[in-house]
């Protein structure tokens, strides 16, 4: 059981670290992270069911996820912040509609069973313990990748764009492209995490990639603190444990799902009211409303 929990934490930690790159460091509010997760999961599952090696599938999942990120980023990144939020939401819902309705490919609501487990250097990864190690390795790699990125001049530029994109552009930073790259990096990680998930559970259906899932990942990031990779992982640890723990209360599944949802929403609201920076948050009060995009005094 504990191995299962840690494996899930590895997967959700990866998702949170990727999303933190987008929301925490670049200041773009995404409501579609589950879509990239799902794209990765389906890509990897379908490829491996068609006979491709599992790790190739996961890589392809990451790439497809990143392509989805490019699509959303390209169409919304130059617009107001809330538009990005809605663009990602719309993308997420369309993706889910595709998972549900393209029955020829995805088997729709029936889902894809029998997704193979990976094998490494000819050794099949069968037990949960082994898979847990794999998930932790992936998480560590993602964390190293994200930390490297945000500590580099690229990460510093991301933060400057989050603080004031007009000023960043005035210095010669290609704001649009940088935002898209950040979104793509985040969705790549989500895509790989999707592959990791699919080959762990060995069964996926569209219900795993809903808006609720996107919100859950968002709560992990906000809870741990925007703009802090370790915070994201901490959020994943605490909330995955809470979520899985709820399953043991013996409530009917419909009630426990709703209860879960209520708990997250209360956490989210409470956190915003009491500690908007999250538990380990970097972002302080950025009062940057509508004025962010307006140059002073329209007329003059």
């Amino acid at each position: 059981m504990i191995y299962h929990l840690v494996t899930l934490i590895g997967i959700y930690g990866m998702l949170a670290v990727g999303l933190n790159l987008v929301v925490g460091y670049t200041g773009l509010f995404s409501l579609g992270h589950a879509a990239f997760f799902g794209l990765g999961a389906y890509t990897s599952a379908l490829l491996s069911l068609a006979g491709a090696p599992v790790f190739t599938g996961m890589l392809a999942g990451g790439i497809i996820g990143a392509l989805g990120g490019w699509l959303v980023g390209y169409s919304t990144v130059n617009l107001r912040g809330d538009y990005f939020c809605l663009g990602t939401l719309a993308f997420g819902e369309i993706t889910r509609a595709v998972f549900t309705n393209w029955i020829g490919l995805t088997r729709g609501p029936m889902g894809l069973p029998g997704i193979p487990r990976p094998s490494l250097f000819g050794v099949p990864i069968k037990s949960v313990e082994q898979y847990m190690v794999l998930a932790l390795i992936f998480l560590a790699l993602s964390l190293a990748f994200a930390e490297r990125l945000v500590k580099s001049p690229f990460g510093r530029m991301l933060r400057s764009i989050r603080e004031d994109d007009v000023a960043a552009a005035s210095l010669g930073k290609n704001v649009g492209r940088t935002k898209i790259v950040a979104v793509m990096a985040g969705s790549f990680m989500a895509g790989v995490a999707g592959g990791l998930y699919a080959h762990y559970i060995t069964y996926i259906d569209p219900m795993g990639f809903t808006l609720n899932q996107s919100i859950f990942i968002l709560v992990l990031v906000v809870f741990g603190g925007l703009g802090n990779n370790y915070g994201s992982i901490m959020g994943a640890v605490i909330l995955v444990v809470v979520r899985e723990g709820l399953r043991f209360l013996g409530l009917p599944s419909s009630v426990s799902a709703a209860l879960q949802q209520a708990i997250y929403s209360v956490l989210l609201i409470g956190l915003m009211l009491v500690r908007p920076r999250g538990l380990l948050g970097e972002v302080k009060y950025m009062t940057r409303g509508d004025s962010s995009r307006s140059l002073e005094g329209g007329g003059e």
Partner: peptide, 15 residues
């Protein structure tokens, strides 16, 4: 901070 009302309204929605 500028994302706070949006995040909160999503929280309210899900609640």
């Amino acid at each position: 901070f500028y994302l706070a009302p949006l995040i909160t309204s999503i929280g309210v929605s899900f609640l």
